[in-house]
């Protein structure tokens, strides 16, 4: 049995420690806000927070995640998460929306680490998140807006 702490709650799983965290979250916990995009840590649709750090859940095994605080899009809270979500909504960033959980999870980590990111900081912080709808113009604007709201 493996115990995972997800969004502040403890869950026990009878799964192989090699199962990618993504599938434990989606298929065992039915927390479906975290998305499957590429399976190889290339697109960021599956980003969650592990002890507050951005992590690609498709490429982390549950065995590695055990003992860490795992936060998914459903469990985010606090002023940074609120500012980011609000900015995303007020600017209508989303199109298909499939990548946006991962985008928001990465943006929260970026703003936690850097209160006033420059465009270049955003390029680096968001490099691993693909949006096939091409909403990057608004993602950038939303991160700047959230930073302003938090200042």
């Amino acid at each position: 049995m493996i115990t995972l702490n997800v969004n502040g709650e403890s869950h026990q799983f009878d799964v192989s420690p090699e199962m990618p965290l993504l599938w434990a979250i989606r298929d065992k916990l039915n927390l479906t806000g975290t998305k499957f995009g590429c399976g190889h840590a290339m697109c960021g649709a599956c980003v969650v927070h592990l002890d507050g750090e951005a992590a690609r859940s498709c490429s982390i095994m549950v065995g590695e995640a055990a003992g860490k605080r795992i936060t998914t899009i459903e469990g985010i809270s606090g002023p940074v998460a609120e500012a980011v979500t609000h900015a995303w909504q007020s600017l209508d960033v989303v199109q298909c929306g499939y990548c946006q959980s991962g985008q928001i999870m990465s943006a929260i980590v970026l703003l936690n680490e850097n209160k006033n990111p420059t465009d270049e900081d955003i390029n680096l912080g968001m490099e691993g998140n693909i949006c096939r709808c091409g909403t990057y113009v608004r993602i950038r604007r939303a991160i700047h807006q959230a930073a302003k709201a938090l200042a």
Binding site: T32, F36, T72, I73, Q89, V94, G97
Partner: peptide
């Protein structure tokens, strides 16, 4: 404002895979 913004920014929007 888009009607689908809230669901798609909170992880609650239901896609086929969900």
């Amino acid at each position: 404002p888009r009607l689908d913004s809230k669901g798609k920014t909170t992880g609650t929007a239901v896609f086929a895979g969900d």
